[in-house]
Simulated scan of single mutants.
Amino acid sequence: MSFLVHYPAPPLSAFVEYFYSPAGPMPYAIEKVMPMPCADLKINFGDPFHARRAGEGAATEALRDSWCMGLWDEYHTVTWPTNPDYIGVRFRPGGGFAVLGVEADELANQVVALDAVLGRFAGEVRERLYEAGGAQARFQVLETLLTRAIRRWPDSGRIAPALTALAESHGHVQVGDLAQSAGVSQKHLITLFNRIIGVPPKTLARLYRLQYLLDTVDIARPVVWTEVAQDHLYFDQAHFNKDFKRFTGHTPGEYLALRRRVAAETPDHAGHTRLLRAG
């Protein structure tokens, strides 16, 4: 499975990492989506999606038109439509706050209809994109619309150095150092992170560490998990195992087996470390 990807130009690139659109059906009908340090927006033109939280037996109501998924600190499961047709937006941490103007903690671990966030403008965006036709034209239209929507939030700029430090260190920065870089107390930094990012600094750091771990573990070679835990500065093996299962729903060994199964069955899909076959 491959995706068409478009990287926006400044100033939007400070808030949006990339746009994406599927180039064909998904190889598995149901997949787990690993938590990552980003919020996500989808504008759908095809059949509905279904999603459910970790541990829930039933899927949510059908996701049909457009929706925003805040930053999650747990995996969730998605049932894909047979022939997906949508444009997705992967926001950088805090990007949804700056562009959509919504408090991030209101979206955390939630899937929210876009019209609840943007009102009538959500329908106008979807209609403009539908009329644009193919993915590349839709990318250009959406980039223009989101660039015009950028809000100038002083608090976003205040925590920008902290966000840069977390990203560049893959989450290995002390909260006290982040607060100092932002020029605020640790308590106020947590308040700002909850409002702008949707989670506290420590949670975002853990998500950055998980993302880096999943992206760098080599599933084609023997994996010694004790060494992985040490390399990623986990306190001990028990802490690593608990954190890993909390986020992915699997032990490290189970996760590795599933990744290898996907690589054997659908090699083109194996690079999507955030997606894991369900069952």
Rank of each mutant, 00 (worst) to 15 (best):
V117E: 05
V78N: 05
L71T: 10
A98Y: 01
T79P: 00
E127K: 15
C68D: 01
V16F: 03
V117R: 06
G24Q: 08
P93E: 04
G183F: 06
H272Y: 14
T251M: 11
L178P: 02
Q136F: 07
Y18E: 06
A179K: 05
T273A: 10
G101T: 07
A165C: 06
S66F: 03
S156F: 13
T82H: 11
V199K: 14
I196C: 09
F240K: 07
D243M: 13
H6W: 07
L275P: 00
I190A: 15
N109K: 13
D231P: 00
F247G: 03
I43Q: 04
A39Y: 01
R152Y: 02
A54L: 02
P84H: 11
Q110K: 15
P8V: 03
T147P: 00
L63W: 08
G88Q: 06
Y28F: 15
H188Q: 14
E61Q: 12
A238M: 07
L275C: 07
P84I: 08
D105H: 11
A113N: 14
R277K: 13
L213G: 11
N109Y: 03
H239G: 02
E265M: 06
H6Q: 04
K202S: 12
G55Y: 02
G88C: 02
R126A: 14
A160M: 04
A182P: 02
R277V: 11
G70R: 12
E17I: 00
G24V: 02
V262N: 02
P200V: 09
Q136N: 12
S66M: 08
Y86G: 06
L146R: 09
L166Q: 11
T82Q: 13
A270E: 04
A264W: 01
R206K: 15
N109C: 09
A62I: 01
I150G: 05
L276G: 09
